[in-house]
Structure formats: C-alpha cells, structure tokens
Amino acid sequence: MTNTREPLLIFDCDGVLVDSEPLSIRVLLDTVAAHGGHLTETEAYQRFLGRSMATLVSVLDTDFDIRADAAFLERMRRDLYARFEKELQPIAGIAEVIAQLPWRKCVASSSQPERIRLSLDLTGLREHLEPYIFSATMVKNGKPAPDLFLHAAKEMGVDPLCCIVVEDSPAGIIAAQRAGMKVFAFTGGSHADREDYRTEISALKPTVIFDDMADLIHLVEKECEARA
C-alpha cells in the first residue's frame, strides 16, 4: 500500500459524475408497470438509489413480488440506454473539476461496467477516468457493504485511510464509512431536491455535504490540510 498523504478520490458515477438518477428511476417504474407490477417513485428512490442490479432484482422479488427476469432486465436496459443517448447530461462543472484535479482518481459504481462506460462516453468524461473504473460486479457484496471501495483502493494501491469517496446515495455513504474512508456527500444532482433524501443524507453524518462540484477541489485541499 502507498503511505503517501496524497488522497485517492473515488467517484461514484450515477448522480455524481452523470445526472442519471431521475432517468434511471423513471425507466425502472415504467418497466415495472409494463410487467404488471406497481412501485412508487418514493419507494424506488428509497430502496434502489445507489444499489447494484443484483440487489434490485432480489428486492423486487422478495419485497414487491415482482420478478425481474431476463425479459424484464433486457427491456429496462434497452429503454434506459435509449433514454441516456437522448437525455443524459454530466453533472454541472464535473468535466472542468476532473481535468483540474491534481490527485489520483477512479470510479467505483454499483452499475454494470457497460453502463458506466456508456454514461461516461455520452458525457465526454471517459477519457479522464479510464482505465480506473470499478463496478459492483467485481465484488461479492454491493453497497452498502464496503467491498467495492476496498477493492478500488486495493487495485489503486492506496490505503483506505487515504481515500476520499464522492457519493450521492445513502448506501454509498454507508459503504465508504464502513471502508474507513472519508466521504463527501454530493447533493447537487437533479434528484437531490427531495426533503426526505436530504434528511437521510444529513443523518448519516458524512465528512462533508456539498451541492456544487466547483467546490470539490477546495474541500479536498481543506481535508488534506487537516491531515497534515
């Protein structure tokens, strides 16, 4: 492991790099309805924000009696990618921030590798982050387990204590905390205006809560000064 005090920034993808959460939730709700099920928007955000596909399939089956079989998943994937190609946007200011970051960085997302790279391609961010892209499919347990963040740190050769995770979901914040990492909660995505969401994020007591990506470099610098 690297003993340097220089941080490794670990970015979640959906809701942190790309403003995808409302698109994803809408497609999920439409797919559930098309297969005869019912799920509210509030339930979808509370149960699935930041979670892996494996978790989604399991929870739909166990808690909502909705079977997300191969046909369900294929329809959702097809519709989601089509919507991404028409509507997906990067988080405001993220490209400029990533280009200016003086520290090492990587992506650790609950999404599948194909979806992560498509999202980054469509928003022009992939060139800044490739090849350091890690998916929940690479570990046994997805968020809120710490496995993915610990895997990313190990692959990057950095002590978890030197990592700063940038996350938007409660599951991701908990995962970073369980990994022993600092976590900066980003609440600037278009899904983050819900009062229940902001209350839950605040209750988790992340290291920092911020809603403007332009502030990230200053916040990391401040954290580095505190560690010195």
Score class of each variant (00 low, 15 high):
4 T>N: 13
7 P>N: 02
10 I>C: 10
11 F>G: 05
13 C>G: 01
17 L>E: 09
23 L>N: 08
23 L>K: 13
27 V>S: 09
30 D>I: 05
32 V>R: 12
37 G>F: 00
41 E>K: 08
44 A>S: 15
47 R>A: 13
48 F>S: 01
50 G>H: 00
50 G>R: 00
55 T>C: 02
55 T>I: 05
61 D>R: 15
63 D>Q: 12
64 F>A: 09
64 F>L: 12
70 A>L: 13
76 M>R: 15
80 L>A: 10
82 A>E: 15
82 A>M: 10
83 R>F: 05
87 E>P: 09
88 L>H: 10
90 P>W: 04
91 I>L: 07
92 A>F: 05
98 I>F: 06
100 Q>M: 01
101 L>Q: 08
102 P>H: 13
106 C>A: 09
107 V>T: 08
107 V>I: 04
107 V>N: 11
108 A>C: 07
109 S>Q: 06
115 R>N: 10
116 I>L: 02
117 R>S: 15
122 L>H: 01
125 L>M: 02
126 R>W: 02
128 H>L: 15
129 L>Y: 07
138 M>C: 00
140 K>N: 04
143 K>S: 07
145 A>R: 13
146 P>A: 00
147 D>R: 11
148 L>A: 07
149 F>T: 03
155 E>Y: 01
155 E>N: 12
157 G>D: 04
159 D>R: 10
161 L>Y: 11
169 S>T: 10
170 P>A: 04
170 P>D: 11
176 A>D: 12
179 A>L: 02
197 Y>S: 07
197 Y>G: 04
198 R>D: 07
202 S>I: 01
203 A>S: 15
204 L>A: 06
205 K>H: 13
205 K>F: 00
205 K>V: 00
207 T>A: 00
210 F>G: 03
219 L>V: 01
220 V>H: 06
223 E>D: 12
224 C>G: 02
225 E>F: 04
